[in-house]
């Protein structure tokens, strides 16, 4: 049955405002990308600012520390992506096994809460909490004979702290998606498995996990787009002179060099670089998801 445009035109018309909004706010500003190739000065505008070709990109890669910064970003964000996928996945399955609804709900709310705290606040709390000088964590570790660990003042520990604290903050939020997927599993599958004599472990292994995999692939694919976002507000609030080598990421670097200096061209160039990398990754991941999980958006 072919849709009849004469009958559905009011629907198309109603779509127009949203479409116009999309074009005005999402597509027209794309023109601003030209700033990445200009020494952009606001008062000279787009016609007046001089073109400098790939100058900003050269500046980005010519700095002695730029590879280090990109590497830091990748390491931190890859680990964040992996653990922000695995932890909620496992946690949702475990939570699903808890049969007392009230308990499930309470736990779910509690792990969800940190998501709403800002890193400005959490940064201050973490500095106190992880202090080598009487901080809670180090006192507990001290009691079992583990010497004070400089969580925030040693490069490798800093990365560890940043990744773990981010996973701690966000895994409750990620769990929600998986719990929703769990609720959609056809109960008759479990009934059938029980009839066949499968225990809870076998049911989890052969029904729950395979049913959740497509959702995990979707979440993973989407988060790949963030591979060059290692979490500006978190790192900015926690980093310091001692961990610059291993903690400085693209976003903090752009903040210092471009935003503080009003250097819009450079900020745009880095943003464009990040977007291109993200797009390539998303396209690849989408292809893979399409091929192996039969996941499709379009």
């Amino acid at each position: 049955m072919k849709p009849d445009i004469r009958r559905t035109w009011p629907l198309h018309l109603m779509l127009l405002p949203a479409l116009a909004g999309l074009i005005v706010f999402n597509y027209v500003p794309l023109g601003g990308i030209v700033m990445a190739f200009m020494d952009y000065k606001p008062w000279l505008g787009f016609d007046g600012s001089p073109w400098i070709g790939f100058g900003h990109f050269r500046a980005l890669f010519e700095r002695e520390d730029s590879l280090q910064v990109i590497w830091n970003t990748l390491v931190i964000s890859v680990f964040k992506i992996i653990f922000n996928l695995l932890v909620p996945f496992g946690f949702a399955i475990l939570l699903n096994e808890v049969r007392i609804r009230l308990l499930t709900r309470t736990i779910q709310t509690m792990v969800y809460l940190p998501h709403f705290l800002s890193w400005v606040i959490l940064g201050g709390i973490l500095v106190n909490f992880l202090s080598t000088d009487g901080g809670f964590v180090n006192r507990v570790l001290g009691a079992i004979g583990i010497g004070p660990i400089p969580f925030l003042m040693h490069g490798d520990w800093f990365r560890f702290t940043v990744i773990v604290s981010d996973v701690w903050k966000e895994f409750g939020y990620g769990t929600i998606v998986f719990l929703a997927a769990l609720a959609n599993i056809d109960p008759s599958l479990y009934e059938a498995a029980e009839v066949d004599g499968a225990g809870r472990w076998k049911q989890t292994l052969h029904i729950t996990i395979p049913s959740l995999l497509p959702m995990a692939i979707v979440v993973g694919t989407l988060s790949l787009g963030n591979i060059l976002n290692a979490g500006f507000d978190q790192i900015f609030n926690l980093y310091n002179g001692m961990v610059m080598n291993k903690g400085d990421i693209i976003d903090t670097f752009v903040y210092r060099t471009a935003i503080l200096e009003g250097n819009f061209g450079f900020a745009t160039a880095v943003g464009l670089f990040k977007s291109v990398v993200s797009m390539v990754l998303i396209v690849c991941a989408y292809r893979l998801a399409y091929k192996y999980a039969n996941y499709r958006v379009f």
């Binding site: 500046a59 700095r63 002695e64 520390d65 003042m153 310091n240 002179g241 001692m242 610059m244 080598n245 400085d248 670097f253 210092r256 060099t257 200096e261 250097n263």
Partner: peptide, 20 residues
């Protein structure tokens, strides 16, 4: 514009690491 941030960064890093 091009170098100051880098120079400040190695400075903060060197100074902090010397003190520690």
């Amino acid at each position: 514009k091009e170098r100051l941030d880098y120079l400040k960064k190695i400075e903060l890093q060197t100074f902090s690491e010397i003190i520690y």
